[in-house]
């Protein structure tokens, strides 16, 4: 099976994150950047499928030059190769444009299965997988917590607010995953060494076949007008339980009309 995993580099969610004061894009230059956590689960799932059914795993990233770091890290887990779409014109791209570029690249890669995270931790938009499926006209099994592959038949279990759903489709398909699907492996030393030699193909926008006017700020379908820091919450009353902590807590809840 020819599997492509979508991997995005994002600013570390454990550190301070901000928007650029110049163009309101996510500040990536000063942030410590990592693989979007959910994408590690997609990589793991791809590797498990390859181990069971054979095939090849390709990592696909659209992102600035610095994203190579995350690509190497992704490769050190085990994928065979990577494709990195990078172009200055892409800066400022909205989700609609990003999906256009990724879908165009995927069109060239002939994937049977496209695996990706259910959402990225920076934008948390949670729309890319659906947009890509829509553009390519292929099946989408989104938000999977379990995936079974039987030949070209895919079955996924997806969490809903009420319980779960079992959904099926045939390849080619996009499957987005949540972190309940597996436990991603740690790269081994051998994996890290091997990743340095794995092929990473660079693609420009022209090579992908998308016009520069359709992406970046030029092609943006939405615009950030302004942003501000929310005033940080401040600590209120803090008491130490000396036998009546529970009662005091309820007294507070009562003044706030919760009981």
């Amino acid at each position: 099976m020819n599997i492509v995993v979508l991997v995005k580099q994002v600013p570390d969610s454990g550190a301070e994150r901000t928007l650029s004061s110049q163009d309101f894009t996510v500040e990536r230059a000063s942030a410590s950047n990592v693989i979007n956590e959910m994408d590690e689960y997609a990589i793991e799932e791809a590797l498990k499928i390859k181990e069971a059914h054979g095939g090849e795993v390709t990592v696909l990233t659209m992102g600035p030059a610095g994203a190579t770091e995350s690509i190497r890290k992704a490769l050190s887990m085990g994928p065979d190769k990577a494709v990195h779409i990078s172009d200055d014109a892409l800066h400022g791209s909205c989700a609609v444009a990003t999906s256009k570029v990724l879908a165009a690249a995927l069109g060239q890669l002939n994937a049977d299965l496209i695996l990706c995270g259910a959402e990225s931790t920076d934008g948390r938009v949670q729309v890319l997988p659906h947009m890509i499926a829509e553009r390519l006209g292929i099946a989408a099994l989104t938000g999977a917590r379990k995936l079974t592959v039987d030949g070209s038949q895919l079955t996924a279990e997806r969490q809903t607010d009420e319980g779960y759903e079992v959904v099926t489709a045939a390849t080619p398909a996009v499957v987005s995953v949540w972190d309940t699907i597996n436990e991603p492996r740690y790269p081994s030393f051998k994996g890290i060494m091997a990743a340095k030699k794995k092929p990473v193909q660079a693609l420009s926008l022209a090579e992908v076949g998308v016009d520069a006017g359709e992406v970046g700020f030029a092609g943006a379908t939405s615009q950030v007008l302004e942003y501000s820091k929310r005033p940080p919450r401040s600590a209120g009353t803090k008491i130490t339980d000396e036998g009546d902590g529970g009662s005091q807590l309820v007294a507070f809840l009562a003044t706030e009309k919760f009981v």
Binding site: A235, G236, T237, I239, D241, G245, G246, S247, L249
Partner: peptide, 24 residues
């Protein structure tokens, strides 16, 4: 968590919570 709590109780939840439940 106390940095953003409007009301914080430093204590063992196994003591504080049952007492709060009784009080409610």
């Amino acid at each position: 968590i106390f940095e953003l709590a409007d009301y914080g109780v430093v204590g063992d939840l196994f003591k504080v919570v049952p007492q709060a439940a009784d009080e409610i």
